[in-house]
Amino acid sequence: MNDMRQFERDVKMTNTKITARSVNVHYGDTHAIKDVDVDIADKTVTAFIGPSGCGKSTFLRCLNRMNDTIDICRVTGLINLDGKDINHKSVDPVQLRAQVGMVFQKPNPFPKSIYDNIAYGPRIHGLARSKADLDVIVEKSLRRGAIWEEVKDRLDQPGTGLSGGQQQRLCIARAVATEPEVLLMDEPCSALDPIATAQVEELIDELRQEYSVVIVTHSMQQAARVSQKTAFFHLGHLVEFNDTDQIFTNPQDSRTESYITGKIG
């Protein structure tokens, strides 16, 4: 009950973008997410931390209904985006995913040119009326992805030819190109070296100006560096959700404390 009061205070402080209430996820017989309530604020970076298999990625994938693509996965509970139920049958998951973009753990550029990678989303959603429009979108997205300077002379070369860090920033730029309102990032730096990680983290901080960003991470340092709010997941439960400073300096739950001090996980 202590947690609930916490939520109410947050809601008053900022605009809430996503509200989740008693969300449960089952994979076949496995109960992966148990009764999770969470409010994700707009123009904020929210970090999900927790040990492997605690359900943080699964929960993230509920937010843009990527779990629909897995046959055995069953999601119950209420998830509202701007006050509208995203699991309502009138909502097209395809349109939802254009609104709630996603960046994956492993960089996954399409085997196409850098230009076509970025133009992919705008093309399928008809965001550009002309080639010139599309050029503008591509440049803007690549600039937001902080990779424009590195690739502007080779837009026609395959995106798969870039280095790992560049590929991940390309994927972020690709997600940004569809003009989403929320950006979900599933361990975006786990396949990157420290320099590329620093670049991506800097990028996440800039993206906060325009988007609500939700990031799943294994690295507590990363959560502390990039996020304003942190949620700690353990064995499918949302154990604690609070301002990042609070979580790391003054955790309320003993499990959170054990995790951030390295005793469990």
Binding site: T69, L96, R97, N108, F110, P111, G121, I124
Partner: peptide, 21 residues
């Protein structure tokens, strides 16, 4: 790879678009 499918679906592609593009 599954990651390419996820990538396309995550950008809001339909299954058909993912298949053809």
């Amino acid at each position: 790879p599954q990651t390419l499918r996820d990538g396309a679906l995550g950008l809001g592609a339909t299954r058909g678009e993912m298949m053809t593009t």
